[in-house]
Design a protein around this nucleic acid. Structure first.
Lengths: 144, 144
DNA sequence: GTTACATGTAATAATATACGTTACAGGAAA
DNA sequence: TTTCCTGTAACGTATATTATTACATGTAAC
Protein backbone atom coordinates (compact mmCIF):
# COMPACT_ATOMS: atom_id res chain seq x y z
CA UNK A 1 0.00 0.00 0.00
CA UNK A 2 1.00 3.61 -0.32
CA UNK A 3 2.46 6.16 2.02
CA UNK A 4 -0.31 8.38 3.35
CA UNK A 5 -1.23 11.48 1.39
CA UNK A 6 -0.89 13.34 4.69
CA UNK A 7 2.66 13.77 3.49
CA UNK A 8 1.79 15.52 0.25
CA UNK A 9 -0.88 17.54 2.03
CA UNK A 10 1.69 18.61 4.62
CA UNK A 11 3.97 19.82 1.84
CA UNK A 12 1.00 21.57 0.25
CA UNK A 13 0.18 23.37 3.50
CA UNK A 14 3.70 24.62 4.10
CA UNK A 15 4.08 25.72 0.50
CA UNK A 16 0.83 27.60 0.68
CA UNK A 17 1.91 29.41 3.85
CA UNK A 18 4.68 30.91 1.74
CA UNK A 19 2.77 31.54 -1.46
CA UNK A 20 -0.05 33.18 0.46
CA UNK A 21 2.02 34.77 3.20
CA UNK A 22 0.33 38.14 2.67
CA UNK A 23 -3.06 36.58 3.37
CA UNK A 24 -4.59 34.66 6.26
CA UNK A 25 -4.11 30.92 6.03
CA UNK A 26 -7.11 29.61 7.89
CA UNK A 27 -7.87 25.91 7.78
CA UNK A 28 -10.84 26.74 5.60
CA UNK A 29 -8.68 28.63 3.13
CA UNK A 30 -6.10 25.87 2.98
CA UNK A 31 -8.77 23.21 2.67
CA UNK A 32 -10.10 25.06 -0.34
CA UNK A 33 -6.70 24.89 -2.01
CA UNK A 34 -6.08 21.25 -1.11
CA UNK A 35 -9.70 20.41 -1.88
CA UNK A 36 -10.58 18.59 1.29
CA UNK A 37 -12.32 19.16 4.59
CA UNK A 38 -10.99 21.83 6.97
CA UNK A 39 -10.86 19.27 9.78
CA UNK A 40 -8.42 17.20 7.76
CA UNK A 41 -6.22 20.28 7.46
CA UNK A 42 -6.47 21.06 11.16
CA UNK A 43 -5.51 17.52 12.04
CA UNK A 44 -2.43 17.59 9.83
CA UNK A 45 -1.66 21.15 10.93
CA UNK A 46 -1.75 19.85 14.50
CA UNK A 47 0.92 17.30 13.62
CA UNK A 48 3.08 19.95 11.97
CA UNK A 49 2.61 22.11 15.05
CA UNK A 50 3.56 19.28 17.40
CA UNK A 51 6.73 18.78 15.37
CA UNK A 52 7.58 22.46 15.75
CA UNK A 53 7.21 23.27 12.09
CA UNK A 54 4.32 25.72 12.27
CA UNK A 55 2.80 28.13 14.74
CA UNK A 56 -0.96 28.09 15.19
CA UNK A 57 -3.11 29.44 18.01
CA UNK A 58 -6.57 28.37 19.06
CA UNK A 59 -9.15 30.95 18.14
CA UNK A 60 -6.77 32.92 15.94
CA UNK A 61 -7.13 32.44 12.23
CA UNK A 62 -4.05 31.48 10.29
CA UNK A 63 -0.78 29.65 10.66
CA UNK A 64 2.84 30.57 10.01
CA UNK A 65 6.00 28.52 9.59
CA UNK A 66 7.99 28.32 12.81
CA UNK A 67 11.28 28.61 10.98
CA UNK A 68 12.65 29.46 7.58
CA UNK A 69 11.30 27.22 4.84
CA UNK A 70 14.89 26.70 3.73
CA UNK A 71 15.37 24.95 7.05
CA UNK A 72 12.41 22.61 6.75
CA UNK A 73 13.18 19.50 4.75
CA UNK A 74 10.66 17.12 3.25
CA UNK A 75 11.97 14.60 5.74
CA UNK A 76 10.89 16.89 8.60
CA UNK A 77 7.37 16.93 7.18
CA UNK A 78 7.45 13.19 6.53
CA UNK A 79 8.32 12.53 10.18
CA UNK A 80 5.85 15.11 11.45
CA UNK A 81 2.85 13.58 9.69
CA UNK A 82 4.00 10.06 10.50
CA UNK A 83 4.05 9.12 6.86
CA UNK A 84 6.13 6.10 7.88
CA UNK A 85 7.20 5.00 11.32
CA UNK A 86 10.79 4.27 12.31
CA UNK A 87 11.87 1.11 10.52
CA UNK A 88 8.34 0.17 9.62
CA UNK A 89 8.13 0.94 5.94
CA UNK A 90 8.33 -2.76 5.20
CA UNK A 91 6.26 -5.19 7.15
CA UNK A 92 7.50 -8.67 7.94
CA UNK A 93 5.21 -11.64 8.51
CA UNK A 94 5.04 -12.51 12.18
CA UNK A 95 5.63 -15.72 14.12
CA UNK A 96 7.35 -17.83 11.46
CA UNK A 97 8.15 -21.37 12.52
CA UNK A 98 11.20 -21.29 14.84
CA UNK A 99 11.86 -24.98 14.18
CA UNK A 100 12.89 -24.06 10.65
CA UNK A 101 16.16 -22.25 9.90
CA UNK A 102 14.41 -19.86 7.56
CA UNK A 103 11.58 -19.24 9.99
CA UNK A 104 13.99 -18.67 12.83
CA UNK A 105 16.51 -16.41 11.15
CA UNK A 106 14.89 -14.68 8.21
CA UNK A 107 13.72 -11.65 10.12
CA UNK A 108 17.20 -10.96 11.43
CA UNK A 109 18.60 -11.34 7.93
CA UNK A 110 16.24 -9.04 6.09
CA UNK A 111 15.53 -6.38 8.70
CA UNK A 112 18.86 -4.61 8.16
CA UNK A 113 18.26 -4.69 4.42
CA UNK A 114 14.82 -3.18 4.78
CA UNK A 115 16.16 -0.52 7.11
CA UNK A 116 18.89 0.33 4.65
CA UNK A 117 16.37 0.71 1.84
CA UNK A 118 14.15 2.89 3.98
CA UNK A 119 17.12 5.06 4.93
CA UNK A 120 18.06 5.50 1.28
CA UNK A 121 14.56 6.80 0.63
CA UNK A 122 14.65 9.12 3.61
CA UNK A 123 18.03 10.50 2.65
CA UNK A 124 16.52 11.81 -0.58
CA UNK A 125 13.82 13.58 1.39
CA UNK A 126 16.41 15.10 3.71
CA UNK A 127 18.09 16.72 0.75
CA UNK A 128 15.09 18.76 -0.34
CA UNK A 129 13.54 21.70 1.48
CA UNK A 130 10.14 23.30 1.31
CA UNK A 131 11.91 26.32 -0.17
CA UNK A 132 13.10 24.12 -3.04
CA UNK A 133 9.53 23.05 -3.66
CA UNK A 134 8.21 26.60 -3.50
CA UNK A 135 10.91 27.80 -5.89
CA UNK A 136 9.92 25.03 -8.24
CA UNK A 137 6.27 26.02 -7.97
CA UNK A 138 7.08 29.64 -8.79
CA UNK A 139 9.46 28.96 -11.65
CA UNK A 140 7.87 25.88 -13.12
CA UNK A 141 11.28 24.22 -13.07
CA UNK A 142 11.56 20.81 -11.49
CA UNK A 143 13.40 20.39 -8.22
CA UNK A 144 15.11 17.37 -9.66
CA UNK B 1 0.90 2.32 5.94
CA UNK B 2 3.41 -0.41 5.38
CA UNK B 3 4.53 -2.32 2.33
CA UNK B 4 2.74 -5.66 2.17
CA UNK B 5 4.30 -8.60 3.95
CA UNK B 6 3.84 -10.49 0.68
CA UNK B 7 7.34 -9.19 0.03
CA UNK B 8 8.93 -10.78 3.10
CA UNK B 9 6.91 -13.94 2.53
CA UNK B 10 8.16 -14.06 -1.06
CA UNK B 11 11.73 -13.85 0.20
CA UNK B 12 10.93 -16.54 2.76
CA UNK B 13 9.58 -18.86 0.07
CA UNK B 14 12.56 -18.51 -2.24
CA UNK B 15 15.00 -18.93 0.63
CA UNK B 16 13.22 -22.05 1.76
CA UNK B 17 13.37 -23.55 -1.74
CA UNK B 18 17.15 -23.44 -1.36
CA UNK B 19 17.42 -24.48 2.27
CA UNK B 20 15.08 -27.40 1.69
CA UNK B 21 16.12 -28.23 -1.86
CA UNK B 22 16.51 -31.90 -0.98
CA UNK B 23 12.89 -32.07 0.14
CA UNK B 24 9.54 -31.35 -1.47
CA UNK B 25 8.37 -27.76 -1.08
CA UNK B 26 4.63 -28.11 -1.17
CA UNK B 27 2.48 -25.12 -0.28
CA UNK B 28 1.56 -26.93 2.92
CA UNK B 29 5.18 -27.40 3.87
CA UNK B 30 6.06 -23.78 3.12
CA UNK B 31 2.97 -22.52 4.95
CA UNK B 32 4.15 -24.42 7.98
CA UNK B 33 7.47 -22.61 7.90
CA UNK B 34 5.95 -19.18 7.25
CA UNK B 35 3.16 -19.92 9.69
CA UNK B 36 0.21 -19.04 7.52
CA UNK B 37 -2.42 -20.69 5.37
CA UNK B 38 -1.33 -22.76 2.34
CA UNK B 39 -3.64 -20.71 0.12
CA UNK B 40 -1.71 -17.59 1.00
CA UNK B 41 1.45 -19.35 -0.12
CA UNK B 42 -0.13 -20.57 -3.34
CA UNK B 43 -1.30 -17.08 -4.16
CA UNK B 44 2.13 -15.56 -3.63
CA UNK B 45 3.76 -18.50 -5.37
CA UNK B 46 1.46 -17.78 -8.30
CA UNK B 47 2.83 -14.24 -8.48
CA UNK B 48 6.41 -15.49 -8.34
CA UNK B 49 5.56 -17.97 -11.09
CA UNK B 50 3.98 -15.29 -13.26
CA UNK B 51 7.16 -13.24 -12.87
CA UNK B 52 9.23 -16.20 -14.03
CA UNK B 53 11.00 -16.68 -10.72
CA UNK B 54 9.73 -20.14 -9.83
CA UNK B 55 8.46 -23.22 -11.59
CA UNK B 56 5.34 -24.88 -10.25
CA UNK B 57 2.96 -27.32 -11.89
CA UNK B 58 -0.68 -28.00 -11.12
CA UNK B 59 -1.13 -31.30 -9.42
CA UNK B 60 2.57 -31.80 -8.79
CA UNK B 61 3.81 -31.14 -5.30
CA UNK B 62 6.67 -28.69 -4.88
CA UNK B 63 8.26 -25.69 -6.52
CA UNK B 64 11.74 -24.86 -7.73
CA UNK B 65 13.49 -21.60 -8.57
CA UNK B 66 13.44 -20.92 -12.31
CA UNK B 67 16.96 -19.54 -12.24
CA UNK B 68 19.98 -19.32 -9.99
CA UNK B 69 19.23 -17.60 -6.70
CA UNK B 70 22.29 -15.46 -7.32
CA UNK B 71 20.37 -14.04 -10.26
CA UNK B 72 17.20 -13.22 -8.36
CA UNK B 73 17.37 -9.88 -6.59
CA UNK B 74 15.06 -8.68 -3.84
CA UNK B 75 13.85 -6.14 -6.37
CA UNK B 76 12.67 -8.97 -8.63
CA UNK B 77 10.63 -10.37 -5.75
CA UNK B 78 9.38 -6.92 -4.79
CA UNK B 79 8.08 -6.37 -8.31
CA UNK B 80 6.69 -9.89 -8.58
CA UNK B 81 4.53 -9.63 -5.48
CA UNK B 82 3.51 -6.07 -6.33
CA UNK B 83 4.84 -4.79 -3.03
CA UNK B 84 4.68 -1.31 -4.56
CA UNK B 85 3.44 -0.27 -7.95
CA UNK B 86 5.43 1.82 -10.40
CA UNK B 87 5.74 5.33 -8.98
CA UNK B 88 3.04 4.74 -6.44
CA UNK B 89 4.95 4.37 -3.20
CA UNK B 90 3.85 7.86 -2.23
CA UNK B 91 0.27 8.90 -2.70
CA UNK B 92 -0.62 12.45 -3.60
CA UNK B 93 -3.95 14.04 -2.68
CA UNK B 94 -6.18 14.31 -5.72
CA UNK B 95 -8.01 17.19 -7.36
CA UNK B 96 -6.37 20.14 -5.61
CA UNK B 97 -7.78 23.52 -6.53
CA UNK B 98 -6.47 24.50 -9.97
CA UNK B 99 -7.26 28.17 -9.29
CA UNK B 100 -4.42 28.21 -6.74
CA UNK B 101 -0.78 28.13 -7.81
CA UNK B 102 0.00 25.50 -5.21
CA UNK B 103 -3.03 23.42 -6.09
CA UNK B 104 -2.25 23.65 -9.77
CA UNK B 105 1.46 22.91 -9.72
CA UNK B 106 2.32 20.99 -6.58
CA UNK B 107 1.86 17.57 -8.04
CA UNK B 108 4.24 18.31 -10.89
CA UNK B 109 6.77 19.66 -8.42
CA UNK B 110 6.79 16.79 -5.97
CA UNK B 111 6.19 13.81 -8.23
CA UNK B 112 9.79 13.74 -9.51
CA UNK B 113 11.01 13.99 -5.93
CA UNK B 114 8.84 11.10 -4.82
CA UNK B 115 9.94 9.03 -7.78
CA UNK B 116 13.57 9.75 -6.98
CA UNK B 117 13.08 8.63 -3.39
CA UNK B 118 11.31 5.47 -4.49
CA UNK B 119 14.10 4.72 -6.95
CA UNK B 120 16.71 5.13 -4.21
CA UNK B 121 14.87 2.54 -2.16
CA UNK B 122 14.55 0.17 -5.09
CA UNK B 123 18.20 0.51 -5.97
CA UNK B 124 19.09 -0.96 -2.58
CA UNK B 125 16.85 -3.93 -3.27
CA UNK B 126 18.43 -4.42 -6.68
CA UNK B 127 21.81 -4.81 -5.04
CA UNK B 128 20.87 -7.81 -2.93
CA UNK B 129 20.11 -11.31 -4.14
CA UNK B 130 18.26 -14.23 -2.59
CA UNK B 131 21.61 -15.97 -2.47
CA UNK B 132 22.92 -13.18 -0.25
CA UNK B 133 19.98 -13.70 2.08
CA UNK B 134 20.43 -17.47 2.14
CA UNK B 135 24.15 -17.09 2.84
CA UNK B 136 23.27 -14.79 5.70
CA UNK B 137 20.76 -17.31 7.03
CA UNK B 138 23.34 -20.08 6.96
CA UNK B 139 26.20 -18.10 8.43
CA UNK B 140 24.33 -15.89 10.83
CA UNK B 141 26.22 -12.92 9.38
CA UNK B 142 24.20 -9.94 8.25
CA UNK B 143 23.94 -9.11 4.58
CA UNK B 144 24.64 -5.51 5.42
C1' DG C 1 -10.47 -45.71 -13.53
C1' DT C 2 -10.55 -44.60 -8.98
C1' DT C 3 -8.28 -42.83 -5.08
C1' DA C 4 -5.25 -39.63 -2.82
C1' DC C 5 -3.15 -35.51 -2.85
C1' DA C 6 -1.40 -31.58 -5.16
C1' DT C 7 -2.07 -26.70 -7.32
C1' DG C 8 -5.23 -22.82 -8.93
C1' DT C 9 -8.67 -19.73 -7.80
C1' DA C 10 -13.09 -17.64 -6.40
C1' DA C 11 -15.68 -16.06 -2.50
C1' DT C 12 -16.01 -14.44 2.01
C1' DA C 13 -14.90 -12.66 6.66
C1' DA C 14 -12.02 -10.23 9.93
C1' DT C 15 -9.05 -6.56 10.62
C1' DA C 16 -6.66 -2.20 9.97
C1' DT C 17 -6.05 2.31 8.09
C1' DA C 18 -7.10 6.42 5.58
C1' DC C 19 -10.00 10.00 4.59
C1' DG C 20 -14.07 12.68 4.99
C1' DT C 21 -17.72 14.56 7.76
C1' DT C 22 -20.58 16.10 11.69
C1' DA C 23 -20.71 17.91 16.13
C1' DC C 24 -19.16 20.49 19.72
C1' DA C 25 -15.87 22.49 23.30
C1' DG C 26 -13.07 26.39 24.02
C1' DG C 27 -10.24 30.66 22.63
C1' DA C 28 -10.03 35.51 20.51
C1' DA C 29 -11.66 39.80 19.20
C1' DA C 30 -14.99 43.19 17.39
C1' DT D 1 -22.46 38.71 23.40
C1' DT D 2 -21.78 37.52 18.88
C1' DT D 3 -18.94 35.64 15.40
C1' DC D 4 -15.40 33.10 13.68
C1' DC D 5 -11.53 30.51 14.57
C1' DT D 6 -8.79 26.12 16.27
C1' DG D 7 -8.83 21.55 18.64
C1' DT D 8 -10.70 17.17 18.99
C1' DA D 9 -13.81 13.28 19.59
C1' DA D 10 -16.94 10.31 17.16
C1' DC D 11 -18.61 8.03 13.31
C1' DG D 12 -19.23 6.37 8.41
C1' DT D 13 -17.27 4.87 4.16
C1' DA D 14 -13.93 2.92 1.28
C1' DT D 15 -10.05 0.15 0.45
C1' DA D 16 -6.19 -3.26 1.21
C1' DT D 17 -4.44 -7.11 3.71
C1' DT D 18 -4.50 -11.51 5.56
C1' DA D 19 -6.78 -15.75 6.68
C1' DT D 20 -10.05 -19.19 5.59
C1' DT D 21 -13.44 -22.24 3.25
C1' DA D 22 -14.81 -24.44 -0.81
C1' DC D 23 -14.16 -26.43 -4.98
C1' DA D 24 -12.36 -27.13 -9.86
C1' DT D 25 -8.62 -29.28 -12.06
C1' DG D 26 -4.18 -31.87 -12.74
C1' DT D 27 -1.03 -35.96 -11.58
C1' DA D 28 0.30 -40.36 -10.37
C1' DA D 29 0.08 -44.60 -7.73
C1' DC D 30 -2.70 -48.43 -7.08
Amino acid sequence: MSISSRFSVGIHILSLLEINKEGTNSSQFIANSVNTNPVVIRKIMGMLKKAGLVTVNPGIAGATPSRSLAEITLFDVYKAVEAVNENELFSIHENPNPDCLVGKSLQGAIEPIFNMAQLALEKVLQGITIKDVVDSLKSGNKVC
